[in-house]
Design a protein around this nucleic acid. Sequence first.
DNA 1: CGACGACTTGACATCGATCAAGCGAGGTGG
DNA 2: CCACCTCGCTTGATCGATGTCAAGTCGTCG
Lengths: 227, 227
Amino acid sequence: MSACLGRLARIAPGLSFSSLVDCIVEQTFFERDQPLWAEPHPSDRLYVIDEGFAFDFTILTGGKRHIFDFYGPGAICNWSRPERGDVPENIIFKSRTAVLVIERARLDALFARDPALSSAVQRHELARAMRVSQRVRALISLAAKDRLRMLLLDIAEEYGWTGNPRRWLSMPLTQEETGDLIGSTSVHVSRTFSSLERGKEIERRGNAFRFVDIDDMRQRMSYRRFG
Amino acid sequence: MSACLGRLARIAPGLSFSSLVDCIVEQTFFERDQPLWAEPHPSDRLYVIDEGFAFDFTILTGGKRHIFDFYGPGAICNWSRPERGDVPENIIFKSRTAVLVIERARLDALFARDPALSSAVQRHELARAMRVSQRVRALISLAAKDRLRMLLLDIAEEYGWTGNPRRWLSMPLTQEETGDLIGSTSVHVSRTFSSLERGKEIERRGNAFRFVDIDDMRQRMSYRRFG
DNA sequence: CGACGACTTGACATCGATCAAGCGAGGTGG
DNA sequence: CCACCTCGCTTGATCGATGTCAAGTCGTCG
């Protein structure tokens, strides 16, 4: 079973997904980072991560790139979010990411036939919106170290594992991208990472990290989990 | 006609609002700043500013207050925003603010009878959400001076005047509150204000300010207007 | 091997927070 | 009416946080 369906299965155990497969009109694999520039008209296609990561972003005045949110296996990259409709949302699929392309019309038809599936997906997207909202508060009000802590906890959620809380998580974004997400710079992200490591909050191995005590960090950040 | 109805009239000219008055179950005037702490259950009452200002906020870890959004005459302070449902949203009504309390059930019934009114209000709230989204991007990614510029433009929108672009606008928040909104401190807000004034971007007179050239500032900030 | 991109580190400049003092408007009580 | 207080704003001094520039390391890939 693909990761996409796996994630749905987790949020709505007992649903049957075979019909969901019929909505898939295309599968793509990106060897290198692949930007998808926002189209003038709302897309009739949804991009679901099957494996790998993606993120959406905008370019602000002055050329600064702002990254809103990132998407792991099973996530829908361009689910309609009306409150963000003010701006073209570009997407970058990270290298070695596999994407399922779903036709929105077919999905809507499927939702009409299967309300349970529809509400499962909606709850799932609402949980994401709340996660973003929680992070945004931190990104506006807190210092860089806390902002990075918050992001790492969100990344753990996006990996969505259960079981081993000390699993190694590979960092899905470069430090440049991480900076554009938390409102900092690549150099400072590097230093902040080192600082968390020195403070024995995380361990690092190459591109990956893990929490020394994720429950403790959640508690100290008042981090709420959704979904 | 009260400011509340006036604002609706502006966004949906030609609608009849007489029935809206029937939804009002209470009118209050706050002589002093009045906090309204979030209730455990979603409120069955909506608070509409008739005159004055209010804002909603949360207390983050470490005791820092984060202000989400602020509400001027005609705004609904606690319209349901599911994506923010992760957190208790407290409201503070500023001193000398008049509030209309509306029963949600009656309003829903009215909306069922009058779809045009319903969609006008929904569009209005969507425009607010987009305005917040636009501001949030700036608050995360830009420096304090640009963050304040963005807020001032939003305040101008919230006053929602047409006509004279050089109207004096009285600042609805203290500098402490302004700092909690843009992720800064009262002292730095004071300095940033002075800096904008020295740079001939705004003029100030006591508690009020006006733009020297609001169109220019909108353009330089790539500020989009909604609603 | 060489080119490249991501990360790290140091030096330095700038931004922004903090602490502290003073000012002025508005409210309160004698 | 005035003395006094409180609150919000301003300003200076100082310190820590963060951005910028630049050089160097490391791993990957052609």
